[in-house]
Amino acid sequence: MPNSSKRAQFERVVLPHLNAAYNLARWLTRDDHDAQDVLQESSMRAYQYLDGFHGDSAKSWLLTIVRHTCYSWLEKNRPAALTTVFDEQLHGAGGDGPHADNTVPADGPEALLQQKQERHQVQRWLEELPVEFREVVVLRELEGLSYKEIGEIAAIPIGTVMSRLSRGRNLLQRKLNGTVDEES
């Protein structure tokens, strides 16, 4: 197709989802500049592959490209970010068992949410989650995507979406409950 109509198509298909694309890139790279580089590269790829987009969800299509670009970028520039250190105390027995975190502090969630200090902590705790848990939590809680959409974007079965989400939330819940020592 001519460049001008391709450009118009890019604006219709890609532009509306640029915030979602950046948000995912920022959460996966955990850095403003890196996220902008990834977004730039993802946008060029999206432009290049635009003729191949015939689907219904432009957002899922773009996020698939962004995620793929993020992982390639991290592999090349920040391989350590992909090397998940699996701490047994964090991920071991009890993660899904009867000792799973079922305590709610006496103050209740509302009190917590009013504390500014806590706000930064939740941000940091989510950033510290291993990337495979972090991405499903971000796509679910911040992007509001369904398990099916997340599965398509992350190229994993729906059952894996559910178990990763569950693991990720268990880890966050432990932090929120203060049951895990920061250093352990």
Partner: peptide, 18 residues
């Protein structure tokens, strides 16, 4: 507790805009 962790993330984790 699940409800709580969801509210915490949705209300406190940042949505980064480009």
């Amino acid at each position: 507790a699940r409800r709580w962790v969801r509210v915490a993330v949705q209300s406190q984790a940042r949505y980064f805009t480009v």
